[in-house]
Design a binder for these strands. Structure first.
Lengths: 155, 155
DNA sequence: GCCATATGGTTTTATGATGCAACCACACAA
DNA sequence: TTGTGTGGTTGCATCATAAAACCATATGGC
């Protein structure tokens, strides 16, 4: 088989995420959904992507529990695609991608938008990773530990 | 042309990130590099990916300034691939992907590792997005604003 | 009712990307 | 010289993607 290697059974959580949203379009669809788009045609015209691909992606994300199809909203017999909590949970990923571009892109002047807090209208801070006790952590301050084995008996 | 649509000129910072690291393998390669892998063979055997694909990805990431080729280190006439600051800057993206799996994956018991702070050995907190004044922000507390036009004259 | 048009897709077909295996180049060792 | 390991490149089969055509169901005009 040549089967574009699936990460489904992989034990790495990053690989598992990529399995669901690691393709070209999914995160952009989620981004648009986060901004309020709901209808097939809206996504299609906004993103300019092929309709068959959009169709496949939407279905895949529905299967993964990232989107749900809501029956209507304006009566028009069609369905809408709305984010589930799992879908909205990708927000930090989108922000991280955005901030990475803002910080390291070779042509940051081409970036058209900035993310601000809607209350004050000022740019948000960089995402920060903290320890349980609140210390700010850099990559070097972290390490991976094997997950404790699930206790079978006393669950 | 069918040319797998490039996001290179896109003004959306998320699309721009995906252009560089939005494919199947790049983030996994970066993850391994973050853990200390450096040599072609190490990546290849650890990730189990085809050598030609690895070769293409490494070259692409070098072109994007995410990796650099260092001439040696153990004398063996070959080169090593090490992360640049831009490459290390993807850390929050990896953490965000990891945490999304941890929170929403259907089979979280299959996730083998947890990210801890190396000082205390305790799991890290969730990534948090804050406003300039320190308020914790949810997706709904944020909005996108057009970037202020670059002033040509008084730069 | 009848035709035109918009929406929301699916099907068809062509090409680029990926996966695998084979091959090549180089370094080093026996 | 031959052998072996590393670091790739090349060919070919298959998969995914893109573009466009096609289809089904409303909606609107007449």
């Amino acid at each position: 088989m040549v089967k574009r290697t699936s990460f489904e059974g992989d034990s790495c959580p990053i690989a598992r995420s990529l399995e669901a949203i690691g393709d070209w379009w999914s995160l952009l669809i989620i981004r648009e959904a986060m901004l309020g788009l709901r209808r097939f045609g809206e996504f299609q015209s906004k993103l300019g992507m092929a309709k068959n691909i959009l169709s496949a992606r939407l279905r895949s994300m529905v299967d993964h529990g990232i989107l749900t199809t809501a029956p209507a909203s304006d009566g028009s017999a069609y369905q809408e695609y709305v984010l589930t909590p799992k879908g909205r949970g990708t927000f930090p990923i989108l922000v991280a991608l955005r901030q990475w571009s803002e910080e390291f892109d070779d042509h940051p002047e081409e970036i058209a938008t900035i993310l601000v807090d809607s209350d004050k209208g000022r740019p948000v801070r960089k995402l920060e990773l903290r320890a349980q006790d609140g210390r700010l952590l850099s990559p070097a301050d972290t390490m991976l530990k094997p997950r404790p084995a699930p206790r079978r008996r006393s669950a």
